[in-house]
Design a protein around this nucleic acid. Structure first.
Lengths: 108, 108
DNA sequence: TTGTTTAGTATACGATGTATAAGAAATGCC
DNA sequence: GGCATTTCTTATACATCGTATACTAAACAA
């Protein structure tokens, strides 16, 4: 990335999902959040790959959670935004919002 | 691209610039529009590459305009949104807006 | 101990993002 | 005319991101 190092479009969606989910953000819940809010049925592999990259860039961090007592309740890898992640996200949102302004199709 | 074939983040910015500029959209004016609205100083080469790809996907079309009577007034390649372009743009905006909703950082 | 469910890892490849360098078409001026 | 200068476009190359598929791991149930 160049000057004001931007993030990709899908990375932005994943970061936004993290912002919404707070404590309960992990692969599957993130996928659901995106599907629910955008209608896009994203591939789960795509989500994990992106999460890895975001962590590699310091925009998110992960910890392994406790297994839950349900069938298939394997330990989750929980993600959350870092300070840098929040900053990058705000910046990228500001860019899109700035570009959308005046066209009258959608407000957040 | 997969199911609801999405566009990239930068492609979205360029399409948005087309929506704003109307009749006078060409490489340089598009670059300026993005810079003015986002503060991002994008590379002119990046803009042209993206415009070519958008045209390749049928989301924009271009025509060669008339030269203007100014120093360096070479004929411009003018771009505009196609119907498919407008649809794809609306769709991608809806996605981001949907994901931003409730976080309180920015409205268009 | 086999099956089913939820979750995550590995990997590969096409699509996008970005930069640099070079080319083309105007005007201005000697 | 011919060369400098300005505006705009093309060509090209490579890094990053997006996406899908296949495989692995850990939990409970029967």
């Amino acid at each position: 990335m160049p000057k004001g190092d931007a993030i990709g479009g899908f990375e932005q969606l994943v970061l936004l999902a993290l912002a919404h989910l707070g404590e309960d953000a992990y692969g599957v819940s993130i996928r659901k959040e995106i599907a629910a809010r955008t209608g896009r049925d994203v591939n789960i592999g795509a989500v994990y790959t992106t999460l890895d990259r975001l962590e590699g860039k310091g925009l998110a961090v992960s910890v392994i959670g406790e297994p839950t007592a349900e069938r298939g309740g394997r330990a989750k890898r929980l993600f959350r935004l870092t300070g840098a992640g929040r900053t990058a996200l705000e910046e990228s949102c500001r860019a899109v919002v700035g570009m959308m302004k005046g066209l009258g199709w959608g407000e957040a």
